[in-house]
C-alpha cells in the first residue's frame, strides 16, 4: 500500500509517522506543503507538529496551503486520510471534518499517555481493534478540546463516527478521565463517509515495545487490511 505524509514548516511528527508506516510495510513518500501534486497514494497522513507556528489558529494557515487543495480533492473522491494531532486541527480547518478544537480546558500543554476506549470499530481505521478495547496512546497538545454543535454531536454519536473516547484504565468514560475538556470525551472523529479520521492521540508513537507499547499498530494494520 502506498502512503504519503504531508510536511509543513513546523511539522515535527512527520519522521515518526514515516518510520512507523515503513516499518508496517507501507511504501511511503514525503510531500512538501508547496507541492501541487500528490503522489499516487492509498493513504494520506497529515502529521502532528506546529504547522506555520500555529499562527492565527492551529492548522488555519496549513489548511490554505497548495498541497491541501489536492488533499481535499483526493479526500472528497474517497481516499483514506488520517490527521494526527495538528493534522486533526488542519482537517478541521479545511472543513473536511466538522467542529473545532479549542484550547485545553486547564490551559496547559498536556503530554502524557492516556487510556482510550475503542467505542466504534466499524470503520477502515479500527477494524483490527475489538469494540470496547482499552488502549493506551500518547497525547501531546495544547488545543485538543473538541467542540461541536448539538446536531453534529448527535450525528457523530448516532452514526458511529467517534472511534476513540478518553477513559480510565477500567474503561470508564467520565470527566475524571477527560484530559482536555473534550465534548463527550471525544479523542477522534470520522467524516460521514468514514474515509477521513482526525485524532489527537499519536498511534505512530505506539508501535514499538522498546520505547512505548504497541497499541498503535492495529490502527495501521486496519488500514492495510
Amino acid at each position: 500500500m502506498n502512503s504519503a505524509v504531508i510536511v509543513f514548516p513546523g511539522s515535527n511528527c512527520d519522521r515518526d509517522i514515516a518510520s512507523a508506516l515503513t516499518k508496517l510495510q507501507f511504501k511511503n513518500k514525503m510531500v512538501w506543503h508547496k507541492d501541487t501534486e500528490l503522489p499516487k497514494s492509498d493513504l494520506i497522513v497529515i502529521p502532528g507538529g506546529f504547522s506555520y507556528g500555529d499562527y492565527l489558529r492551529s492548522g488555519a494557515i496549513a489548511a490554505k496551503s497548495n498541497i491541501l487543495k489536492e488533499v481535499i480533492k483526493s479526500a472528497k473522491s474517497g481516499s483514506i486520510v488520517l490527521g494526527i494531532c495538528n493534522g486533526f486541527q488542519i482537517l478541521i480547518e479545511t472543513g473536511l471534518l466538522s467542529g473545532a478544537l479549542l484550547r485545553n480546558k486547564n490551559l496547559k500543554f498536556i503530554s502524557k499517555d492516556v487510556n482510550l476506549k475503542v467505542v466504534n470499530n466499524n470503520n477502515k481505521f479500527c477494524s483490527k481493534y475489538k469494540k470496547d478495547n482499552i488502549i493506551s496512546l500518547n497525547i501531546a497538545h495544547n488545543e485538543g478540546n473538541y467542540f461541536t454543535n448539538k446536531d453534529h454531536l448527535k450525528e457523530l454519536e448516532d452514526n458511529e463516527l467517534i472511534p476513540f473516547k478518553y477513559c480510565n484504565s477500567k474503561g470508564v468514560i467520565s470527566n475524571e478521565s477527560n484530559p482536555n475538556g473534550s465534548l463527550n470525551n471525544i479523542a477522534g472523529i470520522l467524516n460521514r463517509e468514514k474515509n477521513i479520521l482526525g485524532m489527537m492521540p499519536h498511534p505512530e508513537r505506539m508501535i514499538d515495545d522498546l520505547v512505548s507499547n504497541t497499541d498503535g499498530i492495529d490502527l495501521f494494520s486496519s488500514i492495510l487490511n
Binding site: 492565527l56 488555519a60 480547518e93 466538522s98 467542529g99 473545532a100 479549542l102 467542540f147 461541536t148
Partner: peptide, 8 residues
C-alpha cells in the same frame, strides 16, 4: 475565509 472560525 480565514480570519474567523465561524463555528466558535
Amino acid at each position: 475565509k480565514l480570519l474567523v472560525n465561524l463555528i466558535i
